[in-house]
């Protein structure tokens, strides 16, 4: 599943960054804590539905939909 499909109110665990991503973008994701095993949930959605702000490691980071597409997740029960 992709981060862009994560619904509000659900918690997810990051599985990894999609392989097709550029090396630079991949590293930026890692710097921001988008590492395998990290917990993530939707904090808020912008009035125009994009971008979406995610809470990860107690920090709120917003991503555009096409960028959130590159983050692979699983739903955490």
């Amino acid at each position: 599943m992709r981060l862009s499909n994560l619904e509000k109110g659900k918690r997810a665990i990051i599985k990894g960054i999609e392989k097709g991503c550029s090396a630079e973008k991949h590293q930026r994701f890692l710097d921001l804590g988008f590492v395998p095993g990290a917990e993530i949930h939707v904090h808020s959605i912008s009035p125009l539905r994009d971008p979406i702000a995610y809470s990860i490691y107690n920090t709120i980071i917003s991503l555009r939909r096409e960028d959130a597409d590159s983050v692979l997740i699983t739903i955490d029960n």
């Binding site: 630079e24 973008k25 930026r28 921001l32 904090h43 971008p51 702000a53 920090t59 709120i60 980071i61 917003s62 991503l63 555009r64 960028d67």
Partner: peptide, 10 residues
């Protein structure tokens, strides 16, 4: 290309 957009909401 649009650059990678990340914005922290402090």
């Amino acid at each position: 290309e649009s650059s990678f957009f990340t914005l922290e909401l402090p």
